[in-house]
Amino acid sequence: MTTDASYLDGNAAAGALSQVFAMDVTAAITQCNGCGQTGVFAESHVYVNAPGLVARCSGCDGVLLRVVTTPSDVYLDLRGLTYLRLPNP
């Protein structure tokens, strides 16, 4: 298995996530629920040429989060994250 360079960094998710979060999530600390790697969300690998946005762990390629925007709703799947750590405002 090899990887390619078809992804962007986590900052590419800023727009989609601003639909849901009041705070800037790209600066948040995340822990991958798959491999346990902890890091800044902006360092994740984001795939946008897809039916939705998919952020993957830079360590294990596991899915951290998914965002699907439909005409009526935004679906946010965070099951790939153990936690998302944001500083208090």
Partner: peptide, 12 residues
């Protein structure tokens, strides 16, 4: 033939 992908391309 657009390429859509939600993750890295596996090379099997």
């Amino acid at each position: 033939f657009p390429v859509l992908s939600a993750g890295p391309t596996p090379h099997i």
